[in-house]
Design a protein around this nucleic acid. Sequence first.
DNA 1: ACCTTAACGCTAAAAGTTTGCATTAGCGGT
DNA 2: ACCGCTAATGCAAACTTTTAGCGTTAAGGT
Lengths: 190, 190
Amino acid sequence: MSREMIRQGGRSARIQAAVHAASRALLEQQDRSAITVPMIAERAGVTPSTIYRRWGTLSDLFADVAVERLRPAAPPADTGDTMADLEAYTLEYAEEMSSSVGRALLRDVIADSSDDAPMRCCTYTYDNLRLISDRAVARGEAPLDIAQVFDRIFAPICYHILFADRDVGPDYCRRLLAEVGRGDARRGTD
Amino acid sequence: MSREMIRQGGRSARIQAAVHAASRALLEQQDRSAITVPMIAERAGVTPSTIYRRWGTLSDLFADVAVERLRPAAPPADTGDTMADLEAYTLEYAEEMSSSVGRALLRDVIADSSDDAPMRCCTYTYDNLRLISDRAVARGEAPLDIAQVFDRIFAPICYHILFADRDVGPDYCRRLLAEVGRGDARRGTD
DNA sequence: ACCTTAACGCTAAAAGTTTGCATTAGCGGT
DNA sequence: ACCGCTAATGCAAACTTTTAGCGTTAAGGT
């Protein structure tokens, strides 16, 4: 969306930061259905037309903000044990996403009109899993089967969060992890 | 949303039907970002304020329409073989949802501001799986582990459709089915 | 330092949304 | 079958949001 802009430095970047910050601030205070483009513009010290031109719709702006927030701040913890790494990362992911703000982020990302935002969000998870896998290989262990981790662990977690049909707690996550671990969780990347 | 209305008969129902029909028609012709409430209202022969009052926002109206379209028209096919029933239903589900209109429906449902639409959509799938399972029991077989079918088959399918990170074709679905079948796919409902 | 042009601010017009009031038409009670 | 009650609709005015044109500013390259 605003990734492949031609102008990236200076004012353009400052405005993007201001708009993102204003969006985040408002999302924390009010219900999203009460937030409007002019509100964000005023708080960011920008005219509404700038936002309309750069992001098009409120949904796309929120998707952009959500992707930004979903971008991992720190790499997954390195415990020295691959399965422990995976468990820690999974539990953190589930806890973060199943919160009301996390669920909103997920929905914003998925509502993006282009397929760009959801795919990028997916890539973040992939990169983290890849990192855990690479560390395993560096220790002489077999790599993680990342595709299977997506199918068996992260997909169910996201599904239940998005469809709100069941609670996604640590116990449930550990069961998913155990089912994968019990089988052939590692056998090379697809 | 419009489910628990007090008035259900006569004019109210006619208007709901007209608005739904108008929405569906417009969704087939134009990009959803180009569709507005006044457009739907005109096509349905209704004033915009009626739509605003009953559905609130365009997203919620679309979610309502999507749930309606997702409601199963016919029960899943009965082949006499439980696993064949499950395969047929899964492939049909995946094909329908991975199409561009299907994906849009899924996104509309998930974007619903209340958690009502996504959960109801989920229930439709559950009911269909339950039907397949019940038929299995009637034949003296073990029931389907529905929770596992959700986690191992439908969740991955929906995840990949929503995040657009990979293609969801019959081959992929059959692999998911095989992995469940190979394991303990039937062991009672959670 | 200069040139090109993407991006912004401003403003006015267009479109969409909200709201109050009058009217219509389900629904339950008689 | 009729009557009263009120949810639901239509209409129209007030209000807000969105779009579009135009001049200006400031990145980024030469």
